[in-house]
Amino acid sequence: MKSETVSTLLVEAASLLAIGMVFVFLFLALLIAAINLIAAFCRKFPGNFPAESSSVPLTKPLATPSRKIDDTTLAVIGAAVHQYRKQHQSNVKD
């Protein structure tokens, strides 16, 4: 390439460097301001809108066992286990 064209290209590249970096900095600085604004807005109006919905499974499992086991069921299970252990122990002894 001719040296003249290279030097004109170099001047253009230098101006691109300056303009590009200034623009990137300005744009991202503006974004900093925007993020701070969003944060301030969210602090001011802290509604509890969609809470943790991202962790909700897509489809509900077909048979969801209810987490809370009521006292009667607990008592029944406890008695059954007790009975089983008793039987099992007596079996071992025999």
């Binding site: 290279v6 290209l9 170099l10 590249a13 230098a14 691109l16 460097l17 590009g20 970096m21």
Partner: peptide, 10 residues
């Protein structure tokens, strides 16, 4: 990025 642009022309 922009420095390399300069380098590529150079």
């Amino acid at each position: 990025i922009f420095a390399t642009l300069f380098g590529a022309i150079a």
